[in-house]
Nucleic acid binder design. Structure first.
Length: 555
RNA sequence: GCACCGUUAGCUCAACUGGAUAGAGCGUUGGUCUACGGAACCAAAGGCUAGGGAUUCGAAUUCCUUACGGUGCACCA
């Protein structure tokens, strides 16, 4: 139920829309408020008078129980018992489908995220795109969209020629097979350190061989690719993310020519310094390079082909690119080129930009060995979780499994809790912190609620009318916000809203939990509180699941 | 140099998109157990929202400007 619309309808004043209805700073004042200052000009009266007048003509009902006028604000209080019953019965009835919707039915959203490079292990810099994309994927699905997760593999470029060259010179098959991606990466690093001019030219030749379909070169490349995918799939499984397509850059090698032809036909292509470009000067941007002076394609060329392909293959409603803000200009340019090509769907492409990760002593640098590998972070978090569980609840049956869920939750949540555009300075202290605004706090609260529920025998039933106290009412009101929160998270491409909701609800519940006895309460109070606990447990599980985080029943 | 992004409590961040007394967590100090899980709860201290202008009933939020930090700016992705 949309209370803002309801209020507007009841007020029946032409100038007032739902957007004018705001929230008071605290619940004692009311649940909704209408500032009357804008109306002052139109109605030629003081805001205070207007508020008074509107108050006098407002008739309360079973939904809005009280109206007051304070300093030019008109404050509305909802009927607490009615709201509580409406919210709780909805959550209990829908269960883990609460806050899901059909708003996206019939619409496809492509989400390009994670996009790993072949032969490069995951470091913490890859975490954001992976978990933000993964969460958006789940959120869109929850809202009824057909979500298509695309891992746009970085599988094209001269570095693979280098890799093959390095392998031929130094590689040992068994060692690489055993060492997997780290062994491959070591070869690549060694090449960059030791290769002389002769090897560099060999590398270019190997790349050419891959391109021309040479069998040995391609077999080696495919082998490296499969070792990489085997490795990343292990990480994806832990992070709870999935993909529907692994069509990477190579996939588009034969799909670029039509795009280039089209650019030429439409007179957008221009020669400059030997290269083929699209001039974007009149839009205040540097030119978008389509072909190098040696005729080779570029990043933008492949992205143009990929976007075109995706439109044809999926007919998307939106196509998201979850990529760091470093590439802001690139996306602006390539979106603009599509617009100039007359593609009406260019407006449906969205660069979901997020901030960068650095270390406490500066930027990461693979060359200097200043890297924090994601596996290490995951392992440390799981270890820490295990030791905390062992200390606090050593009798727990499945400690290992639980530690996995808790530790991984901390890794994922840490990357999703803040506004995505903010830069992050990675610190182990922070990720390993299990108190306060963390996933562990949310999981703990969930387990706590579950513990209460397991002790409450009998089925859950909601008393017909029960007027909640302040603590209970705060929980109810927060619960009511989940649908809007999920919707906003999708609309703003901001999973952190869901993460914050989870913490907020957990805080409200813990406050209630301390203040109010549940199992030793009596009659309707007991029934209501158990129902409330059940609803909180459900809503917390939903929010964590949308972020890709599990909720152990005990921990 | 130009463009974009950021700057809120000691630290990490919120603030429902222009509304009332700017809120949380961490850290600090002091409290709460005859327990439904203390990974919790309560309280205190901590703010001229980087500085300066402008817009208006009203600004952390919009505009201009300065400072500081980050990112990008032609054949890498």
């Amino acid at each position: 139920m949309d209370y803002r619309e309801y209020i507007v309808k009841k007020l029946n004043v032409a100038e007032i829309t739902a957007a004018d209805v705001s929230l008071p700073p605290n619940t004692e004042m009311g649940d909704y408020a209408l500032p009357c200052f804008k109306l002052a000009k139109v109605m030629r009266k003081s805001p205070v008078q207007i508020a008074e007048q509107l108050k006098d003509s407002f008739v309360c009902d079973e939904i809005i129980s009280e109206v007051s006028a304070v300093n030019g604000y008109l404050n509305f209080k909802l009927d607490k018992a009615g709201l509580a019953r409406a919210v709780l019965s909805e959550v209990l009835e829908k269960g883990e489908g609460y806050a899901s919707s059909k708003e996206g039915n019939g619409k496809t959203v492509c989400i390009d995220y994670s996009s790993v490079n072949i032969a490069k292990p995951f470091h913490i810099g890859h975490l954001s795109t992976t978990v933000i994309g993964g969460a958006l994927y789940k959120i869109y699905k929850f809202l009824g969209y057909n979500a298509v997760g695309i891992n746009h593999l970085g599988d094209y470029g001269t570095q693979f020629g280098k890799l093959i060259c390095a392998y031929k010179k130094w590689g040992v098959k068994e060692e690489v097979q055993k060492g997997g991606i780290h062994a491959i990466n070591a070869l690549y690093v060694r090449f960059n350190e030791e290769a002389d001019e002769q090897m560099q030219s060999q590398a270019r030749e190997y790349f050419r061989l891959i391109e021309s379909g040479d069998r040995e070169a391609n077999e080696l490349f495919e082998w490296f690719k499969s070792l990489t995918l085997e490795y990343v799939n292990g990480i994806y499984k832990k992070l709870n993310v999935t993909f529907d397509s692994y069509a990477g850059e190579r996939f588009y090698t034969d799909k670029m020519q039509p795009v280039i032809d089209e650019l030429r036909e439409k007179n957008l292509l221009k020669e400059s310094e030997g290269a083929q470009i699209v001039d974007l000067e009149e839009y205040g941007m540097p030119p978008c390079l389509i072909l190098r002076s040696d005729g080779a394609s570029l990043y933008a060329t492949r992205d143009l082909a990929a976007a075109t392909y995706r439109k044809n293959a999926y007919d998307f409603y939106k196509c998201l690119y979850v990529v760091a803000y470093q590439q802001n200009l690139h996306f602006k340019q390539f979106f603009k080129v599509l617009e100039l090509m007359g593609k009406p769907w260019a407006k449906d492409l969205v660069h979901v930009a997020y901030g960068m990760v650095s270390l406490e002593d500066g930027a990461m640098s693979t060359r200097k060995g200043k890297v924090v590998w994601l596996e290490d972070v995951i392992n440390k978090c799981v270890e820490k979780a295990y030791s905390v569980i062992d200390e606090k609840n050593s009798a727990l049956e499945n400690k290992r499994e639980t530690a996995e869920i808790v530790g991984l939750g901390a890794v994922i949540f840490g990357a999703l809790y803040n506004n995505k555009i903010k830069d992050i300075t990675f610190s182990y202290d922070k990720v390993l912190s299990f108190e306060g605004e963390t996933s562990v706090y949310v999981q703990y609260t969930c387990a706590r609620a579950n513990s209460v529920l397991s002790k409450a025998d009998g089925k859950i039933e909601l008393p017909p009318t029960y007027v909640p106290n302040t603590a209970e009412y705060e929980v109810v009101k927060t619960l009511a916000e989940l649908p809007e929160t999920v919707h906003a998270a999708a609309e703003k491409y901001e999973p952190s809203l869901v993460a914050r909701f989870a913490v907020d609800l957990a805080q409200k519940f813990n406050k209630f939990y301390i203040e109010c006895k549940i199992l030793t309460a009596e009659g309707d109070t007991k029934k209501f509180r158990i129902a409330l606990t059940k609803a909180v447990h459900t809503a917390l599980k939903i929010s964590l699941a949308l972020l890709g985080i599990g909720a152990p029943e005990k921990m």
